[in-house]
Simulated assay, not measured.
Amino acid sequence: MIPWVQLDSAKTPDGARELRLKQRGAEFSIMLGTNDLMNSRLSGSEQALAKLSCDRIAGHSRPKILIGGLGMGFTLRAALTELGPDAGVAVAELVPAVVAWARGPMAELFDGCLDDPRVSVREADVGHIIRSDKAAWDAVLLDVDNGPEGIVHKGNDALYSAAGLTAARTALKPGGVLAVWSQGPDNGFTRRLKQAGFAVEEVKTRANGKRGARHVIWIATNPR
């Protein structure tokens, strides 16, 4: 079996933990401690996050999309496939090394999507962007943790709080969508979304097509 090789590492935003980029043949993994945050073989639910969101805003003119978390680019690439030439996609990534990995060791995986003229990458906290905008986005896609809890960055807890969800709804245009990826269900989060005034769908999907772990995507629509 081909062994894993660590290519690089980077501190989490609080400086307390370490993200590690590893490679085994053509396979990549980004790990936090012993937790496999993402793996290049398992992209189905990240792609579903983009497709489900884009389907809900298909009738919007010149849509603007905000993606929280660059990861391995699966959500970004899927969104670009679904969106037309008049769309704009901003990606917020809090860890600069992840952007460097996307342009360096994982460049083939990204297949040039970062150079798409529709794309801008901001090395910033997605929460700050959400809180600074009002009725600016047709869709906000969050794939920054393993669920509605700050794992990589404890400050992300605010994204999933009642105040954070109210801010997200304020940042969305009428009919806009907040989509959140999770490795599993969370009934409390579903309740908070509804209490924030969203119309909520909870979609179960697989990590890899029809196989792999069952993940959850919340599609929360801002009423018109």
Rank of each mutant, 00 (worst) to 15 (best):
G112R: 02
A107N: 07
F189C: 09
K194Q: 15
M1P: 00
G33Q: 11
G69S: 09
I219K: 00
G44Y: 01
K64A: 14
G184K: 15
V119D: 10
A139V: 12
L172D: 04
A50F: 02
S161R: 00
D115A: 10
A58M: 14
P63W: 02
V177Y: 07
G164P: 05
H128Y: 05
I57Y: 10
V119R: 05
G59H: 12
T81I: 06
P96E: 12
A107R: 14
N39H: 15
V180D: 01
A168L: 06
R206G: 00
N156G: 05
M38G: 10
L52P: 01
K11Y: 05
L178I: 00
T81V: 14
N187F: 14
G71P: 13
V119K: 03
V180K: 00
P148G: 03
L70H: 04
A97L: 05
Y160T: 06
A163Q: 11
D86W: 01
L172S: 00
A92I: 02
L80D: 00
D55A: 14
D157Y: 01
K194A: 14
R118F: 06
F198I: 03
V216N: 09
D138R: 09
T190R: 14
A87F: 12
A179N: 09
Q183I: 14
G176D: 00
L83V: 10
V89S: 03
G197R: 08
R211W: 05
A196N: 06
I30C: 03
M38W: 13
T81W: 07
I130A: 07
I57M: 07
R17G: 04
V89Q: 03
T81G: 09
I57P: 04
A124H: 13
V126I: 08
L83Y: 08
A163N: 01
A58P: 12
